[in-house]
Nucleic acid binder design. Structure first.
Lengths: 185, 185
DNA sequence: GTCTATAAGATGATAGAC
DNA sequence: GTCTATCATCTTATAGAC
């Protein structure tokens, strides 16, 4: 009894991941298999066919999140910026670009903070983060300045969780400029 | 059958809140009444006497968290700093002082991100945060600079959740100096 | 490849003893 | 003021039909 007959297994898998991400983005306290299945318009059994355990679902979600930021990073590369410390500037633009930050920030922070409470998913996120931190550390920016840059980009994303308003594109632009300037001293 | 005979009700209440905070600080995915009671060395029934519902426990935890930061803020006031924008500097020192940040940051971030998923507790935290934001906004610092300061202090606290190492006292000092300098231009 | 049914365990909350 | 016992509900996961 195939409900999603027109779809490949891969498409159904993505439907499920998208549904789970959407539920968590809203700040839900918990994610249940049944609730996720309903939101993805799949039966609970159907979901479990694709993700044999809850952990496997959360790990897939974490992998998707890490991969998405990697793509944002590559999209933010500026072929004209051949100077020193260009990777750091690329990171700043990727982290603060309105297309990444606008609207999606609060959502992805809720998602991340949820995943970080589940050891297996947390390991995926932390290893992605460690790789990024290492790349940044070896880009030549003064360590204290780099610490400030990383803290500021993280902080921009998290503010909306406290209830702060999302930054406008103009505000993001001005923060981006302040941080970019720090890499050019 | 009073197990905690030597204690006042208030002391038992605090034992329970402390135990709950400790459990959540470790990044636990959920907080159960039974687990909390066990950690506080009280029976489940005993806990429920003090906190009639789980929500009431979480709200008390949120109130305690907000009040604690208020106290840190007052302790960070510098009677010698009578110049303009001194409240912003007070905030920077309070948020980044090693006694507040060291070791406690990751823990309190896990606690906060948990409470923010529970509407009633989240409301307490967000209203405390709104009050603080308003005080900062009216302290005279340029809005874009203030945005950077707030983002950076938030970011310093959250980094350890991603797996980043806690900042050393010296590193905190240098970030503090960079931010304080921004209020004096 | 997706579904139903159900087992097995955990959880929040109540009632009432001491 | 704190405890035990119990209930109703929810949740993950399995087994097996279609």
């Amino acid at each position: 009894m195939s409900r999603k007959q027109g779809q490949t297994a891969e498409q159904t898998r993505e439907d499920i991941l998208r549904a789970a991400a959407r539920l968590l983005a809203g700040g839900a306290a918990k994610l249940t298999l049944e609730g996720t299945a309903k939101a993805a318009q799949v039966s609970k059994g159907g979901l479990i066919y694709h993700f044999p355990s809850k952990d496997s679902l959360l790990v897939a979600l974490a992998e998707q999140t890490v991969a998405a930021f990697r793509e944002d990073l590559e999209a933010a590369q500026d072929p004209l910026d051949g100077e020193a410390r260009s990777f750091t500037r690329c990171f700043i633009r990727a982290a603060l670009s309105p297309s990444v930050s606008g609207q999606k920030t609060r959502d992805s922070m809720f998602l991340m903070s949820f995943l970080l409470r589940h050891p297996e998913a947390a390991a995926v996120i932390r290893s992605g983060e460690a790789e990024l931190t290492e790349q940044l550390a070896s880009d030549g920016v003064d360590p204290d300045t780099l610490a400030l840059i990383i803290a500021a980009t993280d902080g921009v994303h998290i503010a909306p969780m406290w209830g702060g308003k999302e930054k406008t594109a103009a505000e993001l632009e001005r923060i981006t400029e302040q941080l970019l300037a720090l890499t050019r001293v």
